[in-house]
Protein backbone atom coordinates (compact mmCIF):
# COMPACT_ATOMS: atom_id res chain seq x y z
CA UNK A 1 0.00 0.00 0.00
CA UNK A 2 2.84 2.35 0.85
CA UNK A 3 4.45 1.68 -2.51
CA UNK A 4 1.24 2.47 -4.33
CA UNK A 5 1.04 5.74 -2.44
CA UNK A 6 4.52 6.86 -3.42
CA UNK A 7 3.83 6.17 -7.10
CA UNK A 8 0.68 8.16 -6.93
CA UNK A 9 0.81 11.49 -8.74
CA UNK A 10 -1.70 13.87 -7.17
CA UNK A 11 -3.92 15.71 -9.61
CA UNK A 12 -4.51 19.19 -8.27
CA UNK A 13 -6.67 21.84 -9.89
CA UNK A 14 -5.36 25.35 -9.35
CA UNK A 15 -7.51 28.47 -9.70
CA UNK A 16 -5.00 31.27 -10.12
CA UNK A 17 -5.89 34.93 -10.32
CA UNK A 18 -4.40 36.62 -13.36
CA UNK A 19 -2.93 39.68 -11.62
CA UNK A 20 -0.99 37.97 -8.84
CA UNK A 21 -0.91 34.19 -8.57
CA UNK A 22 -0.89 33.36 -12.29
CA UNK A 23 1.81 35.98 -12.91
CA UNK A 24 3.78 34.67 -9.94
CA UNK A 25 3.48 31.14 -11.31
CA UNK A 26 4.74 32.40 -14.68
CA UNK A 27 7.67 34.01 -12.90
CA UNK A 28 8.58 30.68 -11.34
CA UNK A 29 8.77 29.26 -14.86
CA UNK A 30 10.68 32.21 -16.29
CA UNK A 31 13.19 31.81 -13.45
CA UNK A 32 13.42 28.10 -14.41
CA UNK A 33 12.56 27.03 -10.88
CA UNK A 34 11.82 23.31 -10.89
CA UNK A 35 8.80 22.10 -8.96
CA UNK A 36 6.32 19.22 -9.24
CA UNK A 37 3.97 19.78 -12.21
CA UNK A 38 0.94 18.48 -10.33
CA UNK A 39 -1.13 21.65 -10.27
CA UNK A 40 -3.17 22.21 -13.42
CA UNK A 41 -3.64 25.96 -13.68
CA UNK A 42 -7.00 27.51 -14.53
CA UNK A 43 -6.76 31.26 -14.97
CA UNK A 44 -9.45 33.52 -13.51
CA UNK A 45 -9.42 37.30 -13.28
CA UNK A 46 -9.74 37.29 -9.50
CA UNK A 47 -9.78 34.64 -6.77
CA UNK A 48 -13.20 36.11 -5.99
CA UNK A 49 -14.49 34.46 -9.17
CA UNK A 50 -13.93 31.05 -7.63
CA UNK A 51 -17.37 29.70 -6.85
CA UNK A 52 -17.39 26.87 -4.30
CA UNK A 53 -19.37 24.97 -6.94
CA UNK A 54 -16.20 24.90 -9.08
CA UNK A 55 -14.18 23.55 -6.16
CA UNK A 56 -16.67 20.76 -5.48
CA UNK A 57 -16.90 20.01 -9.18
CA UNK A 58 -13.16 19.54 -9.33
CA UNK A 59 -13.21 17.12 -6.39
CA UNK A 60 -16.20 15.22 -7.76
CA UNK A 61 -14.61 15.01 -11.22
CA UNK A 62 -11.44 13.33 -10.00
CA UNK A 63 -9.09 15.97 -8.56
CA UNK A 64 -7.15 14.96 -5.45
CA UNK A 65 -6.87 18.56 -4.34
CA UNK A 66 -7.80 22.13 -5.22
CA UNK A 67 -5.60 25.19 -4.85
CA UNK A 68 -7.08 28.67 -4.89
CA UNK A 69 -4.37 31.31 -5.18
CA UNK A 70 -4.86 35.04 -5.20
CA UNK A 71 -3.33 38.36 -4.21
CA UNK A 72 -2.29 38.99 -0.63
CA UNK A 73 -5.03 40.58 1.49
CA UNK A 74 -4.92 44.30 0.90
CA UNK A 75 -3.32 43.95 -2.52
CA UNK A 76 -6.23 42.67 -4.58
CA UNK A 77 -6.28 44.25 -8.01
CA UNK A 78 -10.03 44.64 -7.60
CA UNK A 79 -9.68 46.01 -4.07
CA UNK A 80 -11.65 43.41 -2.14
CA UNK A 81 -12.13 40.36 -4.36
CA UNK A 82 -9.87 38.25 -2.19
CA UNK A 83 -11.83 39.28 0.90
CA UNK A 84 -14.86 37.46 -0.52
CA UNK A 85 -12.62 34.49 -1.23
CA UNK A 86 -11.62 34.39 2.45
CA UNK A 87 -15.23 34.62 3.57
CA UNK A 88 -16.30 31.74 1.34
CA UNK A 89 -13.27 29.62 2.05
CA UNK A 90 -13.77 29.53 5.82
CA UNK A 91 -17.32 28.25 5.51
CA UNK A 92 -16.35 25.89 2.70
CA UNK A 93 -13.61 24.41 4.90
CA UNK A 94 -16.15 23.79 7.61
CA UNK A 95 -18.41 21.97 5.18
CA UNK A 96 -15.58 19.95 3.66
CA UNK A 97 -14.78 18.75 7.18
CA UNK A 98 -18.30 17.38 7.37
CA UNK A 99 -17.77 15.60 4.09
CA UNK A 100 -14.63 14.18 5.73
CA UNK A 101 -12.41 15.56 3.01
CA UNK A 102 -9.02 16.07 4.65
CA UNK A 103 -8.03 19.63 5.43
CA UNK A 104 -4.92 19.73 3.28
CA UNK A 105 -6.74 18.94 0.06
CA UNK A 106 -8.39 22.30 -0.54
CA UNK A 107 -6.14 25.26 0.11
CA UNK A 108 -6.27 29.01 -0.16
CA UNK A 109 -2.86 30.62 -0.62
CA UNK A 110 -1.68 34.15 -1.33
CA UNK A 111 0.97 34.52 -4.02
CA UNK A 112 1.96 37.91 -5.37
CA UNK A 113 3.14 38.58 -8.92
CA UNK A 114 6.76 38.67 -7.81
CA UNK A 115 6.66 35.51 -5.67
CA UNK A 116 7.75 32.87 -8.17
CA UNK A 117 9.80 31.00 -5.59
CA UNK A 118 6.93 31.04 -3.13
CA UNK A 119 4.51 29.62 -5.70
CA UNK A 120 6.88 26.76 -6.42
CA UNK A 121 7.19 25.95 -2.71
CA UNK A 122 3.43 26.15 -2.19
CA UNK A 123 2.88 23.65 -5.01
CA UNK A 124 5.68 21.42 -3.80
CA UNK A 125 4.35 21.30 -0.23
CA UNK A 126 0.78 20.75 -1.33
CA UNK A 127 1.78 17.98 -3.75
CA UNK A 128 3.75 16.11 -1.13
CA UNK A 129 1.04 16.48 1.51
CA UNK A 130 -1.59 15.12 -0.85
CA UNK A 131 0.72 12.34 -1.97
CA UNK A 132 0.80 11.27 1.69
CA UNK A 133 -2.97 11.59 2.05
CA UNK A 134 -3.44 9.42 -1.01
CA UNK A 135 -5.83 9.67 -3.97
CA UNK A 136 -9.30 11.03 -3.25
CA UNK A 137 -11.04 8.93 -5.97
CA UNK A 138 -14.34 10.64 -5.32
CA UNK A 139 -15.87 8.87 -8.32
CA UNK A 140 -15.59 5.58 -6.50
CA UNK A 141 -16.73 6.98 -3.18
CA UNK A 142 -19.93 8.68 -4.25
CA UNK A 143 -21.77 5.46 -4.99
CA UNK A 144 -20.23 3.40 -2.24
Amino acid sequence: MAELKSNFEPKIVGFLCKWCAYTGADLAGTSRIKYPPNVNPIRVMCSGRVDPVLVLKALAAGADGVLIAGCHPGDCHYTSGNVKTIRRFKLLQKMLDQFRIEKGRVRLEWVSASEGERYARVVETMTEDIRTLGPLNWNLRKEA
Partner: peptide
Amino acid sequence: GCGVCVAACPSGAIEQRNFTDDQLLAEVE
Protein backbone atom coordinates in the same frame (compact mmCIF):
# COMPACT_ATOMS: atom_id res chain seq x y z
CA GLY B 1 -14.69 42.08 -14.46
CA CYS B 2 -13.54 40.54 -11.19
CA GLY B 3 -16.33 37.97 -11.13
CA VAL B 4 -17.14 38.17 -7.43
CA CYS B 5 -20.85 38.71 -8.04
CA VAL B 6 -20.87 35.86 -10.55
CA ALA B 7 -19.62 33.42 -7.95
CA ALA B 8 -22.08 34.67 -5.33
CA CYS B 9 -25.32 34.70 -7.34
CA PRO B 10 -27.45 31.87 -5.97
CA SER B 11 -29.59 31.76 -9.11
CA GLY B 12 -26.65 31.57 -11.46
CA ALA B 13 -28.17 34.61 -13.17
CA ILE B 14 -24.90 36.51 -13.53
CA GLU B 15 -22.32 35.45 -16.07
CA GLN B 16 -18.80 36.79 -16.62
CA ARG B 17 -18.03 37.20 -20.31
CA ASN B 18 -15.18 34.94 -21.39
CA PHE B 19 -15.08 33.40 -17.90
CA THR B 20 -18.48 31.76 -17.87
CA ASP B 21 -19.33 28.83 -15.63
CA ASP B 22 -19.56 26.60 -18.69
CA GLN B 23 -16.06 27.57 -19.80
CA LEU B 24 -14.49 27.10 -16.38
CA LEU B 25 -16.36 23.85 -15.76
CA ALA B 26 -15.12 22.59 -19.13
CA GLU B 27 -11.55 23.30 -18.06
CA VAL B 28 -12.08 21.56 -14.72
CA GLU B 29 -13.62 18.50 -16.36
